[in-house]
Design a binder for these strands. Structure first.
Lengths: 248, 248
DNA sequence: CGGGGACTTGAGTACTATCAAGCGATGTGG
DNA sequence: CCACATCGCTTGATAGTACTCAAGTCCCCG
């Protein structure tokens, strides 16, 4: 959902020069120690006082909220380069947990906002990050509200492929960052449905599996058709629509 | 309820703004003519060049996106006081349409961002607006991904009640801003399911109807239980949870 | 008074969830 | 080294929620 190449033409604010000290938001974190988070441990919990902003260096995190009766919804996945906890709120509204071994740097939240606010060329960068997050959230609302199980799973695979930088044509092998249960909670499905849809895709020879976490996308074009891409997330031009044209 | 007169201060030419004169984001729009949009007409379309930011003065708008095969997902509803089109993107990613007669003011987008960027006390206000929108989007993802039809409908009714400023106890009458089809596309359901759930709530005497658009919430506490409120949207303290404890 | 739109209700279906095994890797202890 | 427990995933059988298709009602408006 982050397509930096399309957005990088920001109008640079005509303003005072800070002598090019901080080039980007990331450099704010350069002085902070890198921390390691083990898979399954939380960076922060829903309800915690929002003390820091985090820059992800390596690994993958899940951000989720839980209903009173235990149902869980994963609201986003965070990758290297993403900022976590930029919200203006005083408390985190979600829980953030490492999925794989994560490396990150933290920065006090208030000071972060203060620094960004004082640095003209950083302000639009923060706004853009947040707008990207908003766009991702909108894509997700469409997926959850209007896509079928199959479309959700395929959309997810394509999203992972895109984030892996694999715009490449034909057989792309991707590594799924999360397990089936996380996929289910991210896609608004059950673990069994996710598993079944993946099996169906495999039987249809649109994908192949090298273990449960390695997926080869064998026919990108067909997959893109199946995902019912809306314009916001296209990664290569699809042509005509085919109904559910393949075997069950 | 949403007093438009609060937003239409003195008409001050935007060019004259100096630090200290602008009290809030709304005042930026004070000098712009108010436009009227008829129900069903669009303010802008998905894909349009993002030329303006809009301040809603009166009425209600739906913001949606459509999949290639026609399925529609309403991503948000906009009310007086809300800002529309604040995204940093060069094109609108959604369509915005008036539901009821809408009154709004527009402001050139780039100039809006430039002005906000140059005005220290406005910057945090914009950030906060966007963070609020993000929070709403997260609530919606939980609703769409993990709530049942009944919970979605009840959540919607309570959201409308909250926005109507009705924190009041007992029998609250609310006016639904949108019709059944819009509710369906907003809640990720079909029109029939929405209708049926409302009928069930009526038969259970949790609500009453004065025509399809006027709903009396007769037992707030029970409704709140049924909505499976997560912490982010509580409007009055609920205590214990009750399973689906009422007749079908 | 008739037409149309919005909403409601009914009957049958389909998709996804639920419940329940089964499978295959990994890891541990006897 | 192998039995055995565990965990994550897959598969099967069945159930149930929400969808689809189809009337039917109500109300507004011409």
């Amino acid at each position: 959902m982050h397509s930096p190449e399309l957005l990088s033409r920001r109008p640079v604010p005509p303003a005072l020069f800070q002598a090019g000290q901080t080039e980007s938001l990331e450099t704010l974190f350069a002085g902070q120690v890198a921390e390691n988070i083990a898979p399954g441990s939380a960076v922060f919990w829903e309800g915690d006082a929002a003390g820091h902003v985090f820059l992800i260096i390596a690994g993958c995190l899940r951000v989720y909220r839980t209903l009173p009766d235990g149902r869980r919804a994963i609201l986003g996945l965070f990758y290297p380069g993403d900022l976590l906890g930029v919200s203006v709120r005083e408390r985190y509204l979600v829980t953030a947990e490492a999925v794989s071994p994560v490396k990150l740097r933290r920065f006090p939240r208030r000071r972060f906002h203060q620094l960004v606010d004082e640095t003209p060329h950083l302000r639009p960068m923060l706004l853009e990050k947040i707008c990207d997050e908003m766009t991702a959230a909108q894509d997700q609302m469409i997926l959850l509200g209007r896509k079928t199980a199959q479309e959700r799973v395929v959309s997810f695979l394509l999203m992972v492929a895109r984030r892996s930088g694999a715009d490449a044509r034909v057989p792309v092998e991707i590594e799924l960052p999360i397990g089936r249960l996380d996929m289910a909670d991210y896609l608004g499905l059950t673990i069994e449905t996710v598993s079944r849809e993946i099996s169906k895709l495999r039987r249809a020879e649109l994908i192949a599996l090298n273990g449960p976490h390695k997926v080869v996308l064998r026919r990108m074009r067909s997959l893109e058709d199946l995902a019912e891409l809306d314009h916001g997330e296209s990664s290569s031009g699809g042509m005509e629509r085919s109904g559910r044209a393949w075997a069950n």
